[in-house]
Design a protein around this nucleic acid. Sequence first.
DNA 1: CGGCCTGTCATAACACCGTTCTGGAACTTG
DNA 2: CAAGTTCCAGAACGGTGTTATGACAGGCCG
Lengths: 209, 209
Amino acid sequence: MITLFWYGVNVPRPKQYEPDLRDRLIDAAGRLLAEEGPTALTTRRVVAAAGTTTNALYTLIGGKAELVGAMYLAGFRRLADRMDAVPEDIAPLERLSLLGGAYLDNAFANPHLYTVMFERPIPDFTPSDADLTEALSTLQRLIDQVDRCIAAGVMAPSPTAHDQAMALWAMSHGICSLTIAGMFDPAEARALCAQASTALGIGFAVGTR
Amino acid sequence: MITLFWYGVNVPRPKQYEPDLRDRLIDAAGRLLAEEGPTALTTRRVVAAAGTTTNALYTLIGGKAELVGAMYLAGFRRLADRMDAVPEDIAPLERLSLLGGAYLDNAFANPHLYTVMFERPIPDFTPSDADLTEALSTLQRLIDQVDRCIAAGVMAPSPTAHDQAMALWAMSHGICSLTIAGMFDPAEARALCAQASTALGIGFAVGTR
DNA sequence: CGGCCTGTCATAACACCGTTCTGGAACTTG
DNA sequence: CAAGTTCCAGAACGGTGTTATGACAGGCCG
């Protein structure tokens, strides 16, 4: 007889010895990435910082790619938190601008994490399709706010909220990316972003009337 | 007595490396990067593809960082060539749009090289200040064309040509970067870029009148 | 309650990486 | 020809991600 249900019967579930070891590993990786950049993110340094050994990383997380994947998702969660911290009860256009500010703040507060989210500084890791859709879902906040601006009559109804939001996002990301790459300095970047974002909004409104 | 001129007397001039070995190494590295991405760009694979040994790479180029540096500059030269191939005798605004198209073409034709230019896929390499200014000088073509558009009266004289060009560039780069990261697909990216660029131009014109 | 199974984790090893060392061959010059 | 210098193949070094080996802890079934 062949057992079809592997976890159906007679399979003990042993506990994890140190329940927070997985979190400790991910925290240590995050600290290493933030403080010393992608080159410092080696399995050996991570496990040493977490006070354990390589094998724990492999049984608890799976490998370096999965470790970076965890930080990838954590990065988007952090971005989501920052955007959700923007108050609700303000003028739609002003709130949209604050969301943009939060985006730049997030990028410049931890540039290494930002590159993990949007570039490939650790070539072993490329996000899965599930990771990508989860990441893109964070940007729904931007689309929603553009929608509210359209509903309030302060932005044009065409192109679609999605397209206008994507344009705003691409612009902001471009500025963040080039700034992190050393092409702009942060102050310059913020001014440029404010200037260009309003121009973009005006252009969309005028271009379709 | 101290000999001051080391090559003055009695110094034989031994043979040189194969004169094109340096170029062969850089070509092999470029092919490897284009076909298999940054993970394939190892010194051992490069020297094997060029039919030589590690030592040649170190005496002729200096190391992996310098090798990537050569590709960094080659990437900007290639971008410059593509932009310089856009004809001169067309309407300024149309020429500006063709420059944007050339930018996207260049990015999508060799995305791995694009990431070397604007992201840090090989952590051993970060461009020097000299590299950065040389790279930024490529973008002067964009600024010049915006200048011509302003002179022709088809773009607003304010903000400065520099600022408008930087905004257009950041927008285009953002779209390229996000596309290469898997967030957009190339067709979507081209449409978005065209749409957003014209909106940006209109917005700058309207916002200052 | 005891044996077994299974997940947890330390130790040590493997293949590969960038880089450097060693030594011999090749070539130019006196 | 002898000397001196550069070229360059091979081995070696320290570091990387990953995997094999094995000790051990605890939950499940008899």
